[in-house]
């Protein structure tokens, strides 16, 4: 009886064509895939697949251009906002986004991040914050929580010698060029829906040249946190969200 439901007129959800059919290389349960998908869905829904140019970072999502079915450039570590600036300045009518992790955006690329926002580049920055360096195998990130263990803070992050976790989204929200800054998550259905709405809003702002839109997604890293995906999402709620509270940080003035 349920088989007869599986036909095109009953379809309510399928993978968007703005993503390719490649199998994602991410670890099981990693939030990257979901974040990719909702961004791709927004591109699909706004019908801007032919007008969008993305910039991939260095980090776990270095191969993001395999998965987004849009034209993309792979930037050097931390330089995505500069590369995106170069693209947007010569193609002001295109939709340009960067997709960056915490090491890329908030450590090695801090200058590029801040100055792109400060110039109010009309780009979307999608920032995945999981508090750890994934690709290189679990080293400390600028956003690693106090006391959190990583392979370069094996006894926990000691803020006296290693500095405090960096709330870069709050920081860029201070800049006049930043039009919209928000912090979201993608581990639960309600969060995914909200995060997608935020990304959609940001892309629409870009159409009207409002300035930089900055969407942080607090995410998990099951492999390097050494947890199952479901445990990692629970750990994220209990530990990451109190320090990185979800919600809008800067919203356009009416």
């Amino acid at each position: 009886m349920s088989e007869n439901l599986v036909n095109p007129e009953n379809l309510v959800y399928k993978k968007t064509d703005a993503m390719t059919d490649r199998v994602l290389h991410y670890c099981p349960g990693c939030g990257h895939g979901t974040a990719h998908r909702i961004l791709a869905e927004v591109i699909d829904e706004l019908q801007i697949q032919d007008q969008t140019i993305g910039v991939a970072p260095v980090g776990c999502s270095v191969l993001a251009y395999y998965y987004f079915n849009v034209d993309m450039q792979e930037a050097a570590h931390g330089r995505a906002p500069a590369v995106a600036t170069g693209i947007k300045r010569v193609f002001p009518e295109k939709y340009v986004f960067t997709y960056q992790g915490d090491g890329d955006l908030a450590a090695i690329g801090t200058a590029e991040t801040i100055h792109a926002c400060n110039r109010g580049e009309n780009i979307l920055v999608v920032f995945i914050n999981n508090g750890i360096y994934g690709m290189t195998g679990g080293q400390m990130a600028p956003t690693t929580l106090e006391g959190m263990k990583s392979s370069t803070s094996p006894f926990g992050r000691d803020v006296k010698s290693m500095g405090s976790p960096l709330k870069i989204t709050e920081l860029v929200a201070q800049l006049p060029g930043t039009y919209f800054a928000t912090r979201q998550a993608v581990h639960k259905p309600a969060n995914v829906r909200k995060a997608k709405r935020a990304i959609k809003k940001a892309m629409e702002y870009q159409k009207h040249n409002k300035g930089t839109c900055f969407v942080e997604i607090v995410s998990n890293c099951p492999s390097n946190w050494k947890m199952t995906p479901v445990q990692s999402n629970e750990w994220m709620e209990e530990n990451m969200f109190p320090f990185y509270p979800l919600g809008d940080i800067k919203v356009p003035e009416k």
Binding site: Q73, R79, A82, G86, V90, A111, E112
Partner: peptide, 26 residues
């Protein structure tokens, strides 16, 4: 032609990368 003073030489060459990747003369 676009002219932009970047925040650093590092940023400037990467802006060139972005524009050049679009087939533009940078």
């Amino acid at each position: 032609m676009v002219v932009l003073q970047a925040e650093s030489e590092v940023a400037a060459i990467n802006m060139v990368y972005g524009a050049a990747g679009c087939g533009k003369k940078a």
